[in-house]
Design a protein around this nucleic acid. Sequence first.
DNA 1: CGTGATTTTGAGTGTCCTCAACATCTGTGG
DNA 2: CCACAGATGTTGAGGACACTCAAAATCACG
Lengths: 223, 223
Amino acid sequence: MPIPDALSLLTRTPLFQGADRDTLAGLAGPAHVMTFGRGDAVFRAGDPADTLFIVAVGSVRIYRVGRGGRELTLGIDSSRQVLEPASVLGGETRHAAHAQALATPTVLLSFPADLVRHAVQHTPALAGAVIAHLARRDADTHRRLDALVFSGVGERLAAYLLEHAPAPHALPTNSDLAALLGTVPEIVSRKLGDFYRLGWIDLTRRTVTVTDERELQRLSEGL
Amino acid sequence: MPIPDALSLLTRTPLFQGADRDTLAGLAGPAHVMTFGRGDAVFRAGDPADTLFIVAVGSVRIYRVGRGGRELTLGIDSSRQVLEPASVLGGETRHAAHAQALATPTVLLSFPADLVRHAVQHTPALAGAVIAHLARRDADTHRRLDALVFSGVGERLAAYLLEHAPAPHALPTNSDLAALLGTVPEIVSRKLGDFYRLGWIDLTRRTVTVTDERELQRLSEGL
DNA sequence: CGTGATTTTGAGTGTCCTCAACATCTGTGG
DNA sequence: CCACAGATGTTGAGGACACTCAAAATCACG
């Protein structure tokens, strides 16, 4: 499990494409390496957002908690992704969501937020990459909004399967899927069962494969 | 109905705070003035996103259309707001949503997107303002996401009333409210009726006032 | 004062959620 | 290799909520 050094990770981080080596080297200096185990909290909503984390190894789930402990996953960041860039790079002082390591080990590099903000300010190419990245996130989130308003769990699950299971795919737990789709585990179970009975997916030992892409497509688009 | 000249509008546009006068003057040159009436389409989803619009007079609704013609309002931009900054400033080539003028007249200034992008690239203070703005939008949209997942129409309507009607407030039509809250007009009507009967709001000739802030607050937080 | 849009209300339906019981899987230690 | 415990998955029943369709009432405006 090699832990890449800060500089080589930075140069391969999509968000930082376009920054010259010197700028990145200046950031790499004060970097810290942090290691987490599955389930560990990286930060919690309300914590000061004074650190920028980049995933080196493993992955991290960003989520919010609602009434009754129900969770909504906002995103999952794996290698070379930046956690909650909006909170840290826009001047937010506190995190708006929780972050939790998904794998053991999950290795993160941490950078002082003000240093990163400074580098972004003074490196036009970097600023451009950050803007493009935030814009893309904005578009994604809006797509998710209208999926929640305009379609049901069936549609959203079908879309998930089409995206992840053209080839055999190891399903997350029903709880994880539910948090991703904005529902509860029982409903995920029922819908998966429905799809299986309809012959649209194959499902053995938590491995799914889409077998009738056409029908799932039809469903995900709402008939 | 004075139409401000492009430069003075630009200098007072929040998104462009921090740019020096010369930069803005360079943008103001190629600006066009466009006038719309209530209901006119400014652009539609799928249109090329090669123009940046800033509202000078009136307001513009950004929305998406789902199955059965149901609409979801993503945002309403009024004076000095920039329309769909994410599409135009992040390198998107097409608009992801529709935009429609809400008032007669609605006056917009239009700027070539590549010019604006260029200015943003080369003016660090501008880039910083754009990043902060996009980050704020990101946070807002995530708040909306979890409101949709974790709470019902009643909660969302209560939150709307608390935000807009501490003082008497002219209600939009039920259809408009429904598009804002992610539901249908009939439900808005019923919920407003409930609140009225409970004595939580006063409602005369489409003007609402919150009369029992405490109860609405309780509801909007889910008991 | 009439016409078209909007609001209100009723009735019926479907989806999702909750709670609870039961089944299955996974990994551990005997 | 088996037995067990805890986690996860499945299924049933009941209820809450939002949506649809349709009719009636009200409003806005010329």
